[in-house]
Simulated assay, not measured.
Amino acid sequence: MSTVADKLAKKSTRKTSGKQVRLRLVYIDFWSAVKLSFLGSIALAVVTMVSFFLIYLVLQATSVLAKADSIVAAFTDDSIRLSEVAGLPQVMAFAAVVSILNLIVFTVLGAVVAGIYNLAVKVTGGLLVGFMSN
């Protein structure tokens, strides 16, 4: 069965100075995809925690939180203090919850994408990948 990638490969007339190899990706190991997506989501969780911390520090240093606290206090007659609701422990707890949810979602998403790709390969024949050495 001839695919579009095969036809394009045959039309290529330019000569290369190095060795060229064309491989077809026809299967992605399910557990390898799960492990890789888990490691990627751990890295994303670390980035999320650090970014929440840095954004909080910038907002605290520029006194944006203090101004927002005074605006909220004016509207609620000092019944709600934004500094109590959005302190550093609360912000970091929220960042931890977001990180854990992202960890679960991206790990499952990596597994689903690997499964869908393995099913789609049966119809499309796989992904043609070319390598060349100079």
Rank of each mutant, 00 (worst) to 15 (best):
M1A: 07
V4Q: 15
A5Q: 13
K7L: 12
L8P: 06
A9Q: 11
K10H: 07
K11C: 03
K11L: 11
S12C: 03
K15P: 01
T16W: 04
G18I: 06
Q20K: 14
Q20W: 05
L23M: 08
L25W: 14
Y27G: 11
I28M: 07
I28W: 14
I28T: 12
D29Y: 05
W31C: 04
V34S: 01
L36G: 09
F38R: 05
L39V: 13
A43H: 07
A43K: 10
V46M: 03
V47N: 01
V47L: 14
V47E: 07
V50T: 05
L54V: 01
I55D: 07
L57E: 05
L57A: 05
L57N: 09
A61T: 14
A61V: 10
V64P: 06
L65P: 08
L65C: 11
K67V: 11
D69Y: 06
D69L: 01
S70Q: 10
V72T: 12
T76E: 04
S83G: 08
S83K: 07
A86L: 15
P89M: 04
Q90N: 10
Q90I: 04
V91C: 02
A93F: 14
F94G: 14
A96F: 13
A96Y: 02
V97H: 12
I100N: 01
T107H: 05
T107Y: 00
V108R: 08
V108T: 09
V108M: 10
L109G: 12
G110S: 00
A111S: 05
V112E: 00
I116N: 02
N118A: 04
L119G: 12
L119H: 13
A120S: 11
K122M: 03
K122V: 02
K122I: 03
V123L: 11
V123S: 12
T124Y: 06
G125D: 01
G126D: 02
G126H: 02
G126F: 04
L128S: 13
L128Y: 09
V129S: 07
G130I: 09
G130R: 14
G130S: 15
M132C: 15
